[in-house]
Design a binder for these strands. Sequence first.
DNA 1: AAATAATCATAAGCTTGCTTACTATATCTT
DNA 2: AAGATATAGTAAGCAAGCTTATGATTATTT
Lengths: 164, 164
Amino acid sequence: MTLAKPAFPAPDHDHRRCTADALAHAEAVCEQRAQKFTPIRRQVLGALLSSHRPLGAYEVIDELAKSMARPAPITVYRALDFLMANGLVHRIESRNAYLACAAHDHDATSAVAFLICERCGLVGEISSASFAKDLNAAARSSGFAPKLSVVEITGVCAHCQKMS
Amino acid sequence: MTLAKPAFPAPDHDHRRCTADALAHAEAVCEQRAQKFTPIRRQVLGALLSSHRPLGAYEVIDELAKSMARPAPITVYRALDFLMANGLVHRIESRNAYLACAAHDHDATSAVAFLICERCGLVGEISSASFAKDLNAAARSSGFAPKLSVVEITGVCAHCQKMS
DNA sequence: AAATAATCATAAGCTTGCTTACTATATCTT
DNA sequence: AAGATATAGTAAGCAAGCTTATGATTATTT
Ligand SMILES: [Zn+2]
Ligand SMILES: [Zn+2]
Ligand SMILES: [Zn+2]
Ligand SMILES: [Zn+2]
């Protein structure tokens, strides 16, 4: 197993379906784990799913405010924490922002790398076991015991390259 | 070329020398590029060099305040920008913090990975061309043109492992 | 010497990210 | 029905990160 998915959101993909799938997946995960997929949690995930761009917490609040009473920061942070704990949302460290997981199948052994397009802002995920191994090997070669890896690659996506 | 340097700061290394070397290197780089290594810039770099821990901008200010009139944020940010632009300081994205570069020799083709010890807070750099290749290859396989890679690995350093 | 450019200081302020504390619901258990 | 647990709302606040604006120094160029 090297690459899992299309990796980068194509500009013309069926995003309705993409969103629906993600919500269905979230529901399934929560049910399986006997966790509650409450309205707020659903709405926060929904807000993140509205694009493949990472949103800051306050952007999430703004997004939600469009369709409900403006939620307080704490409300959103609680939902984000829940969603992250259940692997439904990733935090993009280099942006202090949050991204709905689009891969749905991170196995424990493979690290996730994010591809961040500096033109359009879209973010793709590549989940590769092979480079996770390399990365960990490199770390261990200096006696370091790696736990969590943050890999965020900025560049230009295929679509934006054509546009230039 | 696989690994360049000791990678992780040994607990008993000659840190005086370590600091002096870094300052000398900074001076050389600036001279070579016809850039001015002004007092503030030197002091900010000095503050970062006081440990192998990344410091937030306000921690830098606190550090400087010990030996001079407390600088304003803007002053420190300007210096940090300069130092980063010249490759003398790295930004640790997952911490919103800044780290004096300890490697002095990043060639353009190799990505830098940071090893962040969650016990002692020290940060090491490994600059490996081999995994940079892998990383870039993985990114390119989905049509993505990578530019800047952020690789930050949290874990436990060799020294802290012995301590447990 | 005058003009230009780079650097720095002063002052103020804004935004974001996140927390603490307390209360109110809802959900589940007994 | 009563109690325990999980979740969410309300209110307030704090700290960090970073910026804008403006004027003063200092260096470089002409
Ligand atoms: Zn989509
Ligand atoms: Zn793009
Ligand atoms: Zn040292
Ligand atoms: Zn350590």
